[in-house]
Write a protein that binds this DNA or RNA. Sequence first.
RNA 1: GGUGCGGUAGUUCAGUUUGGUUAGAAUGCCGGCCUGUCACGCCGGAGGUCGAGGGUUCGAGCCCCUUCCGCACCGCCA
Length: 579
Amino acid sequence: MYRSNTCGELRISDAGRKVTLAGWVQKVRKLGGMTFIDLRDRYGITQLVTEQAVEVGREWVIQVVGEVVERQAKNAKMPTGDIEVKIDTVTVLNKAQTPPFTIEEVSDGGEDIRAKYRYLDLRRAPLQRALALRHRLAQEIRTYLDGQGFMEIETPYLIKSTPEGARDFVVPSRMNPGEFYALPQSPQTFKQLLMVAGYDRYFQIVRCFRDEDLRADRQPEFTQIDCEMSFVEQEDVLNTFEGMMRSMFKNALGVDIPNPLPRMSWYDAMDNYGSDKPDVRFGMKIHEITDLVQGCGFSVFDSSAYIGAIAVEGCAEYTRKQIDELTEWVKRPQVGAKGLIYIKVAADGSIKSSVDKFYTPEQLKAVAERVEAKAGDLVLVLCGAKRKTQTQLGVLRIEMGGRLGLRDPKVFAPLWIVDFPLLEWDDETQRFYAMHHPFTAPKPEHEKWFYSDKKEDLERVCANAYDFVLNGTELGGGSIRIHNADMQSRMFEVLGISKEDAEYKFGFIINAFKFGAPPHGGLAFGFDRVCALFGGQETIRDYIAFPKNNQGRDVMIDSPSKIDQEQMDELFLQSTVKE
RNA sequence: GGUGCGGUAGUUCAGUUUGGUUAGAAUGCCGGCCUGUCACGCCGGAGGUCGAGGGUUCGAGCCCCUUCCGCACCGCCA
């Protein structure tokens, strides 16, 4: 027996017991004739004490036999702080090199070095808590969905490359020279085929792959909670999965979220928040003021299709320098605004703006009222094309919300965004793209427009599509699907995918729909993001045991890496990379 | 593909504006002292291709060019 107890469980009530502990040496404190050792495992830290000479170093793996005793000097900061183990014998199970950074709550190491020694970083309590939360949430999901009659069914990882969407990771086939598998961006088509097969409640916690550039919240391989149901309408899907989120919040965090969850149409989200994933922890809504300020001789406004504003609480005292800094901020390419107009509503109610010579105080006051600015608030105005300007105001709103401390990670404001447009026109390629994905069905009442050839008609088609949004992050989304072969063919036609191409890429699913496909719909959550947000973080890396860096590299195992010429030959691959 | 910030002891950073003696601090590491520490304390010590390559200069961590790497963001991510 290596241990009788873990390093986190002994208490004053255990005093007098003979115990055996095993773990890693966190810290050694020598005080002349006596030595204190902090022994750590994933359950906690227990202090060891001895008057013998012991030779141990940081991160050595040791086993000690000793007696639990009450401490003379207690430490209220740690759960085991009332006791210590008086060492009888120490056995060194394994020595360790001195780690390149400290294995503590807050490490002295930077991200780079910690990534290279990920297995050491994972010893730290914050990372262990993160992975424990992930585990807890996965358990909650399985318990809830199992209780609702869902079956977890695995789908293949070696599948077929598809045209729409993200870039695929591909895998060469040795047995089929010159041909490739693709790794799934999501099990979308398979889960729909499972619906055709009659497995009417499916879910899977499944790895997905997308070969796109990375971010703090984007990894090339990531995990989805993938779900699909048959014989359901949008209402059924939303109820089922807000129930799942509710039990996750309740059982993992002890947080109650509203029942039912708020819902907002995509159009309202864009108009009021300038984003399809609004952070509704705070107000500061966007208001259109075009009708109030146009036609007064200010050419910048007069030549704009849309003029909108937000009221930033308590910022009327911003200095010229602060306003200039904000102006530069919105003019950065990442935001892309041409300039920034401000209206200060002073504490005494008087108004001062950067456009005073074009507007009367009454006109500016009307603007302040429209945007719900109170005395002491700062009104920020942007103008230009409608959706673009709303998006810029949305970005500015998030920035100001952050600066004012209105984005508390311990506050949770989930909601559904519904009624998405089905299609999105792209000027560059002069074609429609599926806003969600090409298997999303138009709303039944919009089908007449879906079969029209007019661009304006197609643009107003809405879908029974929905996103689950939390604190400004899209955590999941889904839709009611097309289950009719003709409608699916029509979708490919609208998207400019030829009959031949559709047949080659998606023939299997169009064909399946001819054999009695039930009405169905579902959704998928980004599990890594769910974990990060539940943990109050913005980066998902801490919630993945072995993540990749910005360049998609695993710096610990140093992958990707070159392969032998022999392997290349076997796979019929030729390198075009110049050495 | 683009923008910004960064790369200097094992680690985290200062030093770069204005080129000039032997490149500093903290922490970690090693040695000594210390019987109630828990960020232990005190004394001493070792430890540097200043990311790489090239250039300017009497002289480069610092200036110029090229390049590699990390982080954040934009594009991209149906």
